[in-house]
Computed example of a mutant assay.
Amino acid sequence: MAKVALVTGSNKGIGFACVRALCKQLNGGIVYLTSRDEGRGKTAIEELKKEGLNPSFHQLDINDQESITRLRDDLQKEHGGLDILIQNAAILFKEKDPTPLAEQAKITMATNFTAHLNVCRTLFPILKPGARVSSVASFVAPMLWKKITDDLKKRFNTVKTEDDVVKLMAEFVELAQTDKHKDKGWIDSAYMTTKMGVCALTKIQGEAMLADSRDDILVNCADPGWVKTDLSSGTGNKTTDEGAETLVYVALLPPGSKTHGKMFSDCKVNDFW
Protein backbone atom coordinates (compact mmCIF):
# COMPACT_ATOMS: atom_id res chain seq x y z
CA MET A 1 0.00 0.00 0.00
CA ALA A 2 1.27 3.47 -0.90
CA LYS A 3 2.59 5.48 2.03
CA VAL A 4 0.96 8.80 2.83
CA ALA A 5 3.23 11.66 3.91
CA LEU A 6 2.51 15.23 4.93
CA VAL A 7 4.72 18.26 5.57
CA THR A 8 3.45 21.29 7.48
CA GLY A 9 4.36 24.78 6.30
CA SER A 10 5.74 23.48 3.02
CA ASN A 11 4.97 26.01 0.30
CA LYS A 12 8.56 27.30 0.56
CA GLY A 13 11.91 26.83 2.27
CA ILE A 14 12.89 23.65 4.07
CA GLY A 15 9.33 22.33 4.04
CA PHE A 16 9.15 22.67 0.27
CA ALA A 17 12.47 20.84 -0.03
CA CYS A 18 11.12 18.06 2.21
CA VAL A 19 8.14 17.60 -0.10
CA ARG A 20 10.49 17.44 -3.10
CA ALA A 21 12.69 14.82 -1.41
CA LEU A 22 9.75 12.68 -0.29
CA CYS A 23 8.22 12.76 -3.78
CA LYS A 24 11.51 11.42 -5.13
CA GLN A 25 12.11 8.81 -2.43
CA LEU A 26 8.63 7.41 -1.76
CA ASN A 27 8.02 5.14 -4.72
CA GLY A 28 4.32 5.46 -5.46
CA GLY A 29 3.77 7.41 -2.26
CA ILE A 30 1.29 10.23 -1.72
CA VAL A 31 2.96 13.40 -0.47
CA TYR A 32 0.92 16.33 0.81
CA LEU A 33 2.30 19.85 0.57
CA THR A 34 0.41 22.08 3.01
CA SER A 35 0.14 25.82 3.28
CA ARG A 36 -1.92 28.32 5.24
CA ASP A 37 -2.51 30.28 2.04
CA GLU A 38 -4.16 28.14 -0.62
CA GLY A 39 -2.87 30.26 -3.51
CA ARG A 40 0.76 30.02 -2.42
CA GLY A 41 0.35 26.33 -1.78
CA LYS A 42 -1.01 25.60 -5.23
CA THR A 43 1.73 27.72 -6.83
CA ALA A 44 4.28 25.58 -5.00
CA ILE A 45 2.56 22.44 -6.28
CA GLU A 46 2.89 23.70 -9.86
CA GLU A 47 6.61 24.38 -9.33
CA LEU A 48 7.18 20.77 -8.30
CA LYS A 49 5.08 19.44 -11.16
CA LYS A 50 7.44 21.25 -13.54
CA GLU A 51 10.18 19.05 -12.06
CA GLY A 52 8.20 15.94 -12.95
CA LEU A 53 6.94 15.40 -9.40
CA ASN A 54 3.33 14.93 -8.34
CA PRO A 55 2.59 16.16 -4.80
CA SER A 56 -0.92 16.66 -3.47
CA PHE A 57 -2.17 19.81 -1.74
CA HIS A 58 -4.14 20.41 1.44
CA GLN A 59 -4.76 23.71 3.13
CA LEU A 60 -3.45 23.81 6.70
CA ASP A 61 -3.13 26.64 9.20
CA ILE A 62 -1.54 25.11 12.28
CA ASN A 63 -2.81 28.04 14.38
CA ASP A 64 -6.40 27.12 13.51
CA GLN A 65 -7.73 24.00 15.24
CA GLU A 66 -10.60 23.70 12.78
CA SER A 67 -8.08 23.58 9.93
CA ILE A 68 -6.09 20.84 11.68
CA THR A 69 -9.24 18.85 12.40
CA ARG A 70 -10.41 19.15 8.81
CA LEU A 71 -7.05 17.84 7.62
CA ARG A 72 -7.25 14.88 10.01
CA ASP A 73 -10.74 13.98 8.88
CA ASP A 74 -9.79 14.16 5.20
CA LEU A 75 -6.69 12.01 5.71
CA GLN A 76 -8.70 9.44 7.62
CA LYS A 77 -11.44 9.38 4.99
CA GLU A 78 -9.16 9.29 1.93
CA HIS A 79 -6.29 7.14 3.18
CA GLY A 80 -7.24 5.56 6.49
CA GLY A 81 -4.55 7.53 8.28
CA LEU A 82 -1.02 8.87 7.91
CA ASP A 83 2.40 7.21 7.57
CA ILE A 84 4.80 10.15 7.66
CA LEU A 85 4.45 13.54 9.36
CA ILE A 86 7.12 16.22 9.04
CA GLN A 87 6.36 19.13 11.36
CA ASN A 88 8.11 22.08 9.74
CA ALA A 89 5.90 25.15 10.24
CA ALA A 90 7.50 27.77 12.51
CA ILE A 91 8.16 31.50 12.85
CA LEU A 92 11.14 33.57 13.96
CA PHE A 93 11.50 37.23 14.90
CA LYS A 94 14.68 38.60 13.32
CA GLU A 95 17.51 39.67 15.61
CA LYS A 96 16.93 43.40 15.04
CA ASP A 97 13.15 43.25 15.29
CA PRO A 98 11.98 45.95 17.74
CA THR A 99 9.06 43.88 19.06
CA PRO A 100 9.49 43.52 22.86
CA LEU A 101 10.45 40.06 24.15
CA ALA A 102 7.14 39.86 26.03
CA GLU A 103 5.24 40.01 22.74
CA GLN A 104 7.74 37.84 20.86
CA ALA A 105 7.38 35.17 23.54
CA LYS A 106 3.58 35.00 23.21
CA ILE A 107 3.53 34.96 19.41
CA THR A 108 6.46 32.58 18.89
CA MET A 109 5.24 30.13 21.53
CA ALA A 110 1.75 30.09 20.03
CA THR A 111 3.05 28.84 16.68
CA ASN A 112 6.30 26.99 17.35
CA PHE A 113 5.11 25.07 20.40
CA THR A 114 1.38 25.29 21.12
CA ALA A 115 0.23 24.90 17.50
CA HIS A 116 2.87 22.21 16.99
CA LEU A 117 1.46 20.31 19.97
CA ASN A 118 -2.09 20.74 18.68
CA VAL A 119 -1.07 19.16 15.36
CA CYS A 120 0.49 16.26 17.27
CA ARG A 121 -2.56 15.71 19.46
CA THR A 122 -4.87 15.82 16.46
CA LEU A 123 -2.89 13.74 13.96
CA PHE A 124 -1.13 11.20 16.21
CA PRO A 125 -4.34 9.17 16.68
CA ILE A 126 -4.47 8.49 12.91
CA LEU A 127 -0.83 7.45 12.56
CA LYS A 128 -0.58 3.99 11.04
CA PRO A 129 1.64 1.19 12.41
CA GLY A 130 5.21 1.87 11.31
CA ALA A 131 4.59 5.62 11.06
CA ARG A 132 7.38 8.17 11.41
CA VAL A 133 7.20 11.70 12.85
CA SER A 134 10.01 14.15 12.16
CA SER A 135 9.79 17.60 13.75
CA VAL A 136 12.03 20.57 13.01
CA ALA A 137 14.21 21.32 16.01
CA SER A 138 17.33 23.46 15.68
CA PHE A 139 20.98 23.80 16.62
CA VAL A 140 19.81 26.65 18.86
CA ALA A 141 18.36 24.11 21.33
CA PRO A 142 21.85 22.86 22.34
CA MET A 143 22.94 26.52 22.44
CA LEU A 144 20.14 27.32 24.89
CA TRP A 145 21.00 24.23 26.96
CA LYS A 146 24.51 25.60 27.57
CA LYS A 147 23.16 28.95 28.74
CA ILE A 148 20.31 28.06 31.11
CA THR A 149 20.88 27.40 34.81
CA ASP A 150 21.48 23.96 36.30
CA ASP A 151 18.17 24.20 38.14
CA LEU A 152 16.29 24.75 34.89
CA LYS A 153 18.21 21.90 33.25
CA LYS A 154 17.07 19.66 36.09
CA ARG A 155 13.47 20.66 35.50
CA PHE A 156 13.75 19.81 31.80
CA ASN A 157 15.39 16.50 32.66
CA THR A 158 12.54 15.51 34.96
CA VAL A 159 9.56 16.20 32.66
CA LYS A 160 7.30 13.16 32.44
CA THR A 161 4.29 14.29 30.42
CA GLU A 162 3.34 16.67 27.62
CA ASP A 163 1.63 18.86 30.21
CA ASP A 164 4.91 19.14 32.15
CA VAL A 165 6.52 20.64 29.05
CA VAL A 166 3.48 22.87 28.46
CA LYS A 167 3.90 24.27 31.99
CA LEU A 168 7.58 25.03 31.41
CA MET A 169 6.83 26.86 28.18
CA ALA A 170 3.95 28.78 29.78
CA GLU A 171 6.23 29.81 32.63
CA PHE A 172 8.71 31.35 30.21
CA VAL A 173 5.98 33.34 28.46
CA GLU A 174 4.48 34.53 31.74
CA LEU A 175 7.83 35.59 33.21
CA ALA A 176 8.80 37.36 29.98
CA GLN A 177 5.76 39.64 30.40
CA THR A 178 7.40 41.27 33.43
CA ASP A 179 11.03 40.72 32.40
CA LYS A 180 11.57 38.25 35.24
CA HIS A 181 12.49 35.23 33.09
CA LYS A 182 16.21 35.49 33.84
CA ASP A 183 15.47 35.22 37.56
CA LYS A 184 14.27 31.66 36.89
CA GLY A 185 17.19 30.68 34.67
CA TRP A 186 15.77 31.47 31.22
CA ILE A 187 17.50 33.55 28.55
CA ASP A 188 16.41 36.33 26.17
CA SER A 189 15.28 34.18 23.25
CA ALA A 190 11.74 33.11 22.50
CA TYR A 191 12.77 31.10 19.43
CA MET A 192 15.48 29.12 21.24
CA THR A 193 13.06 28.41 24.08
CA THR A 194 10.38 27.06 21.73
CA LYS A 195 12.86 24.77 19.99
CA MET A 196 14.01 23.40 23.35
CA GLY A 197 10.33 22.86 24.06
CA VAL A 198 9.98 20.85 20.83
CA CYS A 199 12.96 18.70 21.86
CA ALA A 200 11.47 18.07 25.30
CA LEU A 201 8.07 17.30 23.81
CA THR A 202 9.63 14.91 21.31
CA LYS A 203 11.35 13.02 24.12
CA ILE A 204 8.05 12.51 25.94
CA GLN A 205 6.13 11.56 22.79
CA GLY A 206 8.78 9.16 21.56
CA GLU A 207 8.84 7.29 24.84
CA ALA A 208 5.03 7.24 25.02
CA MET A 209 4.84 5.52 21.63
CA LEU A 210 6.70 2.53 23.07
CA ALA A 211 3.53 1.67 24.99
CA ASP A 212 1.22 2.31 22.03
CA SER A 213 -0.75 -0.62 20.64
CA ARG A 214 0.32 0.32 17.10
CA ASP A 215 3.69 -1.20 16.30
CA ASP A 216 6.89 0.61 15.36
CA ILE A 217 5.82 4.27 15.48
CA LEU A 218 8.81 6.57 15.97
CA VAL A 219 8.69 10.23 17.01
CA ASN A 220 11.95 12.17 16.65
CA CYS A 221 13.08 15.68 15.77
CA ALA A 222 15.84 17.00 13.56
CA ASP A 223 18.17 19.96 13.29
CA PRO A 224 18.33 21.05 9.64
CA GLY A 225 21.40 23.20 10.28
CA TRP A 226 21.98 26.80 9.27
CA VAL A 227 19.95 27.05 6.09
CA LYS A 228 19.44 29.83 3.56
CA THR A 229 15.73 30.61 4.07
CA ASP A 230 13.47 33.57 4.79
CA LEU A 231 13.85 32.86 8.49
CA SER A 232 17.64 33.27 8.25
CA SER A 233 17.32 36.28 5.92
CA GLY A 234 19.04 34.28 3.21
CA THR A 235 22.14 33.58 5.28
CA GLY A 236 23.39 30.09 6.10
CA ASN A 237 25.80 27.51 4.78
CA LYS A 238 23.19 25.02 3.54
CA THR A 239 20.68 25.04 0.73
CA THR A 240 17.08 24.16 1.55
CA ASP A 241 17.57 20.75 -0.05
CA GLU A 242 20.57 20.15 2.21
CA GLY A 243 18.57 21.38 5.21
CA ALA A 244 15.83 18.87 4.40
CA GLU A 245 18.20 15.88 4.40
CA THR A 246 18.15 15.09 8.13
CA LEU A 247 14.42 15.72 8.44
CA VAL A 248 13.70 13.30 5.61
CA TYR A 249 16.24 10.81 6.96
CA VAL A 250 14.33 10.73 10.26
CA ALA A 251 11.00 10.49 8.40
CA LEU A 252 12.22 7.44 6.51
CA LEU A 253 13.92 5.47 9.30
CA PRO A 254 13.56 1.81 8.27
CA PRO A 255 11.30 -0.72 10.00
CA GLY A 256 12.71 -1.95 13.28
CA SER A 257 14.68 1.21 14.04
CA LYS A 258 14.79 1.71 17.78
CA THR A 259 15.64 5.41 18.08
CA HIS A 260 12.78 7.33 19.65
CA GLY A 261 12.41 10.75 21.23
CA LYS A 262 15.80 11.99 20.02
CA MET A 263 17.13 14.96 18.09
CA PHE A 264 19.20 14.24 15.00
CA SER A 265 21.89 16.47 13.51
CA ASP A 266 23.54 15.55 10.19
CA CYS A 267 21.60 12.26 10.21
CA LYS A 268 23.04 11.23 13.59
CA VAL A 269 21.59 11.35 17.10
CA ASN A 270 22.59 14.49 18.99
CA ASP A 271 22.33 13.69 22.71
CA PHE A 272 22.91 17.21 23.98
CA TRP A 273 20.81 16.83 27.13
Rank of each mutant, 00 (worst) to 15 (best):
M1P: 11
K3M: 13
A5C: 04
V7T: 02
T8L: 03
G9Y: 05
S10H: 14
I14L: 00
A17N: 11
V19M: 02
G29P: 02
G29I: 05
V31P: 06
T34R: 04
R36K: 11
D37I: 04
E38F: 01
E47W: 06
K49R: 11
K50R: 10
E51F: 07
E51V: 04
S56E: 11
Q59A: 10
Q65I: 14
S67R: 02
T69Q: 15
L71R: 07
D74K: 15
H79Y: 13
L85S: 00
Q87Y: 10
I91F: 00
F93Y: 12
K96P: 06
D97S: 07
Q104H: 13
A110S: 12
V119M: 14
C120F: 11
R121E: 14
R121C: 09
R121A: 07
I126S: 04
P129M: 08
G130E: 13
S134Y: 07
A137R: 01
M143W: 03
K147R: 15
I148Y: 14
K154D: 05
R155I: 12
N157V: 04
T158M: 05
T161V: 06
V165D: 03
V166R: 07
A170P: 02
F172N: 03
T178N: 09
T178V: 14
T178H: 00
K182G: 01
K184A: 13
D188M: 05
K195C: 11
K195L: 09
V198A: 12
C199W: 11
L201V: 03
L201Q: 06
G206H: 05
G206D: 03
D216R: 02
I217C: 06
L218A: 04
V219F: 13
V219D: 07
C221V: 04
A222T: 09
A222N: 13
D223T: 13
D223Y: 06
G225H: 06
K228I: 15
L231F: 02
G236W: 09
N237E: 14
T240K: 14
D241Q: 14
A244L: 13
V248G: 07
A251W: 10
G256W: 02
S257V: 03
K258P: 03
T259G: 02
K262P: 00
K262C: 14
M263G: 10
K268Y: 08
K268Q: 11
W273Q: 01
